[in-house]
Design a protein around this nucleic acid. Structure first.
Length: 429
RNA sequence: GGAGACAUGGCCGAGUGGCUUAAGGCGGCGGUUUGCUAAACCGUUGUAGGGUGUAAAGCCUUACCGAAGGUUCGAAUCCUUCUGUCUCCGCCA
């Protein structure tokens, strides 16, 4: 959510910036009217409440002095004020609801360093690490992960479809162990080398939590809703529960930045992507992810984004997987982000890079929704913190990237060296 | 699933309709005293909105005692619903 005062005072600039995000700026049209009406009504209501308070107090004093008749005479005056205040309160409620409807659906403002453009074509490549493996030189044609893993008996898509449906998968044997190895490897790296604290959060969250990180109210169709006494949703990413750890809190400035990492399964309905990535593990309704979250002071957040992205890249470097980092354009970024780097891993079967991590600085956008604030030492003012998150990494996609990039001519898969202690074997055959 | 108790500020805790602007204590912050520390004493203390102010400060004002409604001239206090916590019983990994 954007700052109301900022929107009021910089309306044209806000409009202009939002237009670069493919946001329909016509939706902002009612803002000025609603905002000024709200303030007028608040003022009127508060004045009436002040009258009610003053007269009621007077009534109390008169009663105590035994002047019953005088007290009775004042009641009408007080009653009238409080009734009018209630009427205005009702109107105000409607206005605030409308204003909220507008503001909660407006995306974050892009940072000035973000390339302007309407879609992924405007993304810019920030850097590239490693080289694609030269299969031609090795004299064989790389297969895709479905063929390799199915043949090895470590991936079973057919049975997953039977027991659940499309876009689910069963890993078995060393396939399951490789997944678990990756999770442990990533968590050990981030907690041991990068200074993150490990969190194991709930996988179902309430509406307020999803509002805090920006999934609700606008993107409900992307989520799995659970039937229960009240609405719960399966988390689409650990960013949701972990960022919300500090919802409605005022943190001590000296404790910032906070760095958390969490492994969780993630659940996404993938509404609107029915034809896309239907083969294999790329796009699943349930997948594992190790997430990185940082809560920082405002002046530190963009540097923290570089650090966080670097922490995610380190995983790929240690695994020896070729990748590139892309700065998303204004039109390609997610709702809450002010700046996003996607990390894309090389997939030989597709002869291209595919997203394996998305690292975003959400500035104060989520913090305002979730009321994550802090106080600087010796200061009385509360300030909104900045929140960041990034995959470190998407485990399922890392799994398939390893299968494809480490495949051998005989159909076996070499285990990357850093994973050998975790998997217990040097190759999967 | 059944029975009962409870929810007050950073923490403990008083407050059963108006003299509450939420007592008192602890903690925090500032100060006095002191060779230093401690103790003692004095002062101070939350969040959000609106108004005023060139800005900071300040000043005026509203709301907030788990949440949402209601009764009343007036609600922390009474009523309704919800949420959460605790205790006991049952069930359960």
């Amino acid at each position: 959510m954007l700052d109301v005062n900022y929107v009021r005072e910089n309306f044209d600039l806000v409009r202009e910036k939002l237009a670069t995000r493919n946001f329909d700026v016509a939706l902002l049209e009612p803002f000025a009217q609603l905002d000024s009406e709200r303030r007028a009504l608040v003022r009127e209501r508060d004045d009436l409440n002040a009258t009610t308070n003053r007269v009621s107090k007077e009534i109390g004093n008169l009663m105590r002095e035994g002047k019953r008749d005088e007290a009775e005479a004042l009641k009408a005056q007080s009653k009238q004020a409080s009734e009018r205040a209630k009427e205005i309160e009702a109107r105000l409620g409607g206005i605030e609801e409308d204003l909220r409807t507008v503001l909660t659906r407006v995306p974050n403002l892009p940072h000035e360093s973000v390339p302007a453009g309407k879609d992924e074509a405007a993304n810019t490549e920030a850097r590239r690490w490693g080289m694609p493996r030269d299969f031609a030189a090795e004299g064989f044609e790389p297969k895709d992960h479905v063929d390799i893993a199915t043949a090895l008996g470590i991936l079973d898509l057919e049975r997953a479809t039977k027991i659940t449906g499309a876009r689910f998968n069963v890993l078995s044997g060393l396939g399951a162990k490789l997944e678990r190895a990756l999770i442990n490897f990533m968590l050990d790296l981030h907690t041991g080398e990068h200074g993150y604290r490990e969190i194991l959060p709930p996988l179902m969250v309430n509406e307020a939590t999803l509002f805090g990180t920006g999934q609700l109210p606008k993107f409900e169709e992307d989520l799995f809703k659970v039937r229960f006494e009240r609405d719960y949703y399966l988390i689409p990413t650990a960013e949701v529960p972990v960022t919300n750890l500090h919802r409605d809190e005022i943190l001590n400035g000296a404790d910032l930045p906070l760095s958390y990492t969490a492994y969780t399964p993630c659940f996404r309905s993938e509404a609107g992507s029915y034809g896309r990535d239907t083969r294999g593990l790329i796009r699943q309704h349930q997948f594992d992810k190790v997430e990185l979250v940082k809560i920082t002071k405002p002046e530190e957040s963009f540097e923290a984004l570089e650090t966080l992205t670097g922490n995610a890249e380190k995983v790929l470097q240690l695994l020896g997987l070729h990748y590139r980092v892309v700065t998303l354009s204004t039109g390609d970024m997610g709702f809450s982000a002010a700046k996003t780097y996607d990390i894309e891993v090389w997939l030989p079967s597709q002869n291209t890079f595919r997203e394996i991590s998305s690292c975003s600085n959400c500035t104060d956008f989520q913090a305002r929704r979730a009321q994550i604030r802090f106080k600087r030492e010796g200061k009385n003012k509360t300030e909104l913190a900045h929140t960041l998150n990034g995959s470190g990494l998407a485990v399922g996609r890392t799994w398939l990237a390893i299968i494809e990039n480490y495949q051998q001519a005989d159909g076996s898969v070499k285990v990357p060296e850093v994973l050998v202690p975790y998997v217990g074997v040097t190759e999967i055959r």
